[in-house]
């Protein structure tokens, strides 16, 4: 019986990992292509949540979840074109500073626009409740979330691995100078990657809004987790991020089972252990331009 309970926590952890993924994958993509650690990533997550509520109030929950990532992704294009682009080749400290500053500005902007008090958000009644499969309990809403995440994940993987677009992006990660020598401008690709990454973060925000408190600082909260996931997985590695997100979810679940008070600390301990033995993260690739 004890084992079964533990297994339930492991499965729940996998579901939980699924939604860390939405945020972490975008963060990882933007880093591997542009070499920029985007500290403003959490801000797009928060914006995604707020914009989805704004849309949902007028057009319903489904429209909020579907349209909010599009709106925020458009903002992402402007973010890449006017800010991020200037920092690809600059000292990394500058891009860290500028994205950190942007995260602060975004948080205050949300505070000005929507107020400091948290906004109420709920899911449609149909999503509430849980389904019991065998001995396992799943929240209906989280199963829906998992399906969305799996679809997005498959889409991104296909895009990167099965299309001409993906080939250029992957080449750009390893050998940007060679790609340039072949007469391909990387900039439009970069814009698209940032747009996708930011859109995923916004989708995460829109999807989480019904289950976590929606307040101006929510971006800073999720960024820490996303960053830990990316570091554990290895910056730049697609499957590394996937593996790390699931691992963080599972470790959190198991820790909650045995030492509940340490559940939040467990992922940092995991990061510490992984970095001790694999400083580049679990599946971190050797990327020449960052060495």
């Amino acid at each position: 019986m004890q084992l079964l309970f533990l297994l339930e926590q492991v499965v729940n952890g996998l579901v939980l990992g699924g939604y860390y993924l939405l945020i972490a994958l975008g963060l990882s993509l933007i880093f591997s292509v542009g070499g920029v650690v985007n500290l403003a990533h959490g801000a797009f997550y928060a914006l995604g949540a707020y914009v989805s509520l704004e849309i949902a109030r007028r057009l319903g929950f489904g429209a909020g979840v579907a349209l909010s990532p599009v709106v925020v992704a458009l903002l992402g294009i402007a973010f890449e074109r006017f800010i991020l682009r200037r920092f690809y080749t600059a000292d990394p400290i500058l891009s860290l500073l500028v994205t950190f500053g942007l995260a602060l500005v975004a948080e205050q902007a949300i505070r000005i626009a929507w107020g400091a008090a948290p906004l109420p958000a709920s899911m449609p009644q149909a999503f509430k409740g849980a389904v019991v499969l065998g001995d396992f309990l799943f929240s209906k809403y989280r199963l829906f979330l998992l399906a969305v995440v799996a679809t997005v994940l498959a889409g991104i993987w296909l895009l990167l691995n099965k299309t001409a677009f993906g080939r250029v992006v992957r080449a750009g990660i390893q050998r940007p100078d060679m790609v340039a020598a072949l007469g391909i401008r990387l900039q439009p690709y970069m814009t698209t990657i940032v747009m996708l990454g930011v859109g995923m973060a916004a989708l995460g925000g829109a999807l989480f809004a019904p289950i976590v408190i929606v307040h101006p600082a929510m971006g800073a909260e999720i960024l820490t987790v996303a960053f830990v996931v990316v570091v554990i997985g290895g910056l730049g590695s697609f499957w590394g991020v996937v593996l790390a997100a699931l691992l963080v979810g599972v470790v959190r679940g198991i820790t909650t089972h045995f030492v509940p008070a340490a559940s939040e600390a467990s992922m940092y301990l995991l990061m510490f252990l992984v970095l001790m033995f694999r400083p580049r993260g679990l599946l971190g690739e050797r990327i020449e331009k960052f060495e």
Binding site: F5, L16, L137, I213, E221, R252, G253, A261, S263, E264
Partner: peptide, 20 residues
């Protein structure tokens, strides 16, 4: 009696324990 850190945002592992 389960202790949770003040920055806990996801309670699902705790909810499973409550169910048990």
């Amino acid at each position: 009696d389960e202790l949770t850190a003040t920055d806990t945002t996801d309670f699902s592992p705790f909810l499973l324990k409550i169910r048990q």
